[in-house]
Amino acid sequence: MDEKTSNIQRLSNPTAYWSSVAGFIALMLLVIGAVYYATVTVEYQWRWYKAPKYFMYIETVTIYADSNGEVKEIKENGDKFDVIITDDLGDITYTVPKGSYELDEGDFTSPGDKIAEYVGGWKPGLLAIGLWTTLKISFISTILGILLGVIGGVARVSDTPILKWTAITYVEIIRGSPLLVQIMIAYFVLGTTINKLLYMNGFGTLDPEWYGVAALSVFTGAYVVEIVRAGIGAIHPGQVEAARSGGMTYFQSMYNIILPQALKTILPPLAGQFINLIKDSSLLGMIAIRELTKATREGITTSLQAFELWILCAILYLFMTFTLSMCVQYLERRTATK
């Protein structure tokens, strides 16, 4: 019991304390048990043994012919074999392991015929792919969100109208509309326009991921602007005066004196914002980004194991947000000792 408790809350009697702990555990077990019992009553078939394959599975590769052709040649290629099939359009080479094919030179193939079947090795499952995408998108958006927020926050407290008013406009517009709508605009309005412009000028188009990252970072950045502004506002004005009266420029005093001090007060609300960012990334499934939530939905459409997969999905989000808040608590303790 290293947490501080007031005298009002403290249970002085150890028996009372431990029976209260036991009560808590019993309550949790009761809730889980009740849910489980209810699901069994409605005849849901729990199949947790199917869960691991959504993280990792051994892939079986099957290759089918896609045209009428003839096996021209089979030759060794290292420890594998090249099966070369000739059709109307020319030669097609399939490189497959030894023993995985049942063809001989001179055999004919029709579309849909099995050419080879072999074990391909470990592959990441749907949830692993989704988790990785969510982590990647959240990480990039966090970095961009901090950049936008700090630049915007410094602009917000400056006296120059173009900086200050731009920052205010940005914050008010972004905070005044739902993130889902912003994601739709980022992809279907801006995305369509930008991709078309890129295409017309001979460049490749951008993936939806980039529009998703843009929407999330712009959204988070607006909130970070306000957090940074509050953090800067909490610093005694004498600090700026001391820095500026020594001959530092505005930006030197911001970067070297004000922001390092503001960071300490900014850290806890910033952490909350980035925890929200991880959770908000679940909306990106709406623009065909296969993040964790969308991957879960895809998994359910094929397996129908809705209960297991949604619970797993929630646990994975919890795992990410909990890790982040642990990291921030560690940082807070480190900055507090200084």
């Binding site: 005694h236 004498g238 600090q239 001391a242 001090q261």
Partner: peptide, 12 residues
């Protein structure tokens, strides 16, 4: 140089 009433040292 300027010296202030409340010192204004940089606490970090």
């Amino acid at each position: 140089g300027m010296v202030f009433q409340s010192f204004n040292l940089f606490p970090h």
